[in-house]
Amino acid sequence: MEVPPRKSLRAVMPFAPDKPSELVRRELGLKEVVRLCSNESSLGPSPKALAAYHKAAEGLSCYPDGGSPSLRSALARHYKLRPENIIVGSGSDELIRLCCEAFLDVDDEVMVSQYAFIRFRQQAAVMGARLIEIPMTDWTHDLETMGRAANPRTKILFVASPNNPTGTYNTKAELEDFLLSVPPTTLVVIDEAFYDYARENDDYPGTVPGLVRKHSNLVVLRTFSQAHGLAGLRVGCAVGDPETLGWLDRIRLPFNVSLPAQRCAQAALADKAFLARSVQTIVRCRESLAAALREMGFGVMDSAANFLFVRSARVRGRALSKALLRRGVVIHPLDEYGLADHVRISVGTPAQNAALLKGLREILREEP
């Protein structure tokens, strides 16, 4: 190649998605494929969101509303903030990228926790930033150590709560102390993609609107991909100080969120009863699945999300994933995190979870 890319891109590897279900089905001659690999909602979206999707199809010849103004206003009412406190993006991934593009120069420091959501380090690397990694404690972000390590050179500090892939979160007291210890010139980005599953825990922090109002250097990310069941539409939001979000808005693509995504997200946000039922069902299935896996000898962390962080002592993660794939069940190995003996398993329906457990029993019987 004669045209050289940016130097920082040489260290960036492209995202490697799991194989599409239809391709797996054809290649292996399977009747059905159970996807438990991407933390999607096994219950799907609200019927009201689906109705909004079909209605939005009538306007597909037109560009979507730039800036998603109706959805932005609905989110502001929902969070008891102003529209200026909200920016809508194409899922949390775009919003993480916008934070990095807006605030990072080459060699700026970005601090993350060990085993934190991998997209943080990937986007920091794209910008040529220096990555500072802080070890976890009990598979959880060590916010006290991160707060002490933060200094005027620290430009962005990323925290995922609950964290993907460990499923752990930091308490209200831990987060409040942490925010007070971080320099005001450091942007703190808290990714709460799994907020809806964690918020019922008494010690889970209320970042929006309370902490956002107190800390102008705080940005909180939320998404419609998980509990709302809209992963295929890619829509999420960032909540924070208007001046901070204004820099993200300057570089946001003009029509970054499609018309169906905007309409569906607004309908899903309004259907609180469906969201509550969906979350309750997933939590029940999660606890039942965790108990069954522990009985089989797997190490399973307590989770505040819609997935389980599982240690497999007898069969290493990638080998276990391949063996399940041959049986039509897709889970996610965690080699990319350096966790070769762990996998992440999304919580499915009772029937999907039963298929997983059946496959695991067969695999374990084959092992010496």
Rank of each mutant, 00 (worst) to 15 (best):
L293C: 02
M296F: 04
A305S: 09
I331E: 06
L259C: 11
L275F: 04
L324T: 01
P333V: 12
A238K: 06
T349A: 04
V220K: 03
S225A: 11
A323D: 07
S288H: 04
R252W: 07
A273R: 15
V347I: 14
L245H: 05
S312W: 02
R234N: 12
K214T: 03
G297P: 08
T281C: 02
F307S: 10
A268I: 08
R314Q: 14
F307K: 01
A313V: 15
G236H: 14
I331T: 08
L320W: 00
W247T: 11
L339M: 11
G348S: 05
Q226L: 09
Y337R: 10
F298S: 07
D271P: 01
G232D: 10
C237V: 14
G299I: 12
L269D: 10
S303R: 00
L218F: 03
R234F: 13
M301W: 15
L308W: 01
S258N: 03
F309L: 07
Y337Q: 14
H332E: 09
I331V: 15
V219A: 10
P254H: 05
L259S: 11
G297H: 04
V330D: 10
I345C: 13
A319L: 11
V329Y: 15
A273L: 06
D335N: 15
V329H: 08
P242V: 07
R263T: 12
L259F: 11
F224M: 11
M296Q: 13
R286E: 00
V257R: 13
L230C: 04
P333T: 08
L293F: 03
V220N: 04
L221E: 03
I282T: 13
G236M: 11
V235Q: 13
T349M: 04
N217F: 01
C264K: 09
K214Y: 01
H342L: 10
R314A: 14
F298T: 10
A276F: 05
D335Y: 06
R284Y: 00
R250Q: 11
T349I: 00
R318M: 13
K272H: 08
T223L: 06
L293G: 02
V220Q: 00
C285L: 05
D302V: 04
S312Q: 02
R327G: 10
K272L: 07
V283G: 00
I282G: 00
S312M: 02
P260H: 06
L245N: 03
T223D: 03
V239I: 15
F309W: 12
E295P: 00
E295N: 06
E336C: 14
H342D: 05
V347F: 01
D249P: 01
G317K: 01
V310M: 10
L308G: 11
S321Q: 10
V329I: 15
E243A: 13
G240N: 02
L325M: 15
A291L: 08
G317V: 02
L289V: 05
R326T: 06
Q226A: 07
L275Y: 03
G232I: 05
A323R: 15
R314Y: 06
V300D: 06
R294Y: 05
H342A: 05
R286Y: 02
Q262K: 08
T349S: 15
A238M: 12
D249A: 10
S288Y: 01
R263Y: 15
M296S: 10
A291Q: 12
A292D: 14
L275N: 01
R344S: 09
G299N: 09
S216G: 11
L230W: 13
T244S: 04
G328N: 13
R263G: 04
S321V: 04
G232K: 09
A292E: 15
R263P: 07
R311K: 15
A323S: 14
L324N: 02
H228M: 13
